[in-house]
C-alpha cells in the first residue's frame, strides 16, 4: 500500500507541483490549502504517513499547525516536514520546537524532496 503524504500550502502552484512529483514517485497525496483545512481533515481521521506543511500561511501558520497536530493522538509520532527558505532559517528552530521532524528548503529539486521524504518515512 502506498504511503500517504499530506501537503499543506497556501500556494496552489506549490501544491500542484509538489503533488505531481510525489504522485509520480508513487505516493498518495492529500492536499490542503490552509492549516485550518488541514486540521479539519486530520480531525476527521485522514490516514497520513507524512505531513508536509508550509510555514508562512495566512490564518493559522505552519508552526501553529504543527503544534496542533502534535496534540492529536493519532499523529503524535508521525513525521512532519515543513517547507522553508534560505532566508527563514531562524524559524527552523521554532518549527522544530513545535514538534516538526525536519524541513525542506525551497527551492528544492525533486530529488531533494524525495530524498528527504525517504529519510523521514518509516
Amino acid at each position: 500500500m502506498s504511503k500517504t503524504i499530506f501537503l499543506v500550502d497556501d500556494s496552489a502552484t506549490i501544491l500542484m507541483s509538489v503533488s505531481a512529483i510525489l504522485g509520480k514517485a508513487g505516493y498518495s497525496v492529500e492536499k490542503a490549502g490552509s492549516a485550518e483545512e488541514a486540521l479539519k481533515k486530520l480531525n476527521a481521521g485522514a490516514k497520513v504517513d507524512l505531513l508536509i506543511t508550509d510555514l508562512n500561511m495566512p490564518g493559522m501558520n505552519g508552526i501553529e499547525l504543527i503544534k496542533e497536530v502534535r496534540k492529536l493522538p493519532a499523529y503524535r509520532f508521525q513525521p512532519i516536514l515543513f517547507l522553508t527558505t534560505e532566508s527563514q532559517q531562524s524559524r527552523k528552530a521554532e518549527a522544530k520546537a513545535a514538534g516538526a521532524s525536519g524541513w525542506i528548503v525551497k527551492p528544492a529539486t525533486a530529488d531533494d524532496l524525495l530524498n528527504t521524504i525517504k529519510l523521514v518515512l518509516r
Partner: peptide, 10 residues
C-alpha cells in the same frame, strides 16, 4: 520520537 522521527530512519 516526539518529533515524529525514528532513530532507525537515520
Amino acid at each position: 520520537l516526539r518529533m515524529g522521527m525514528d532513530p532507525l530512519s537515520f
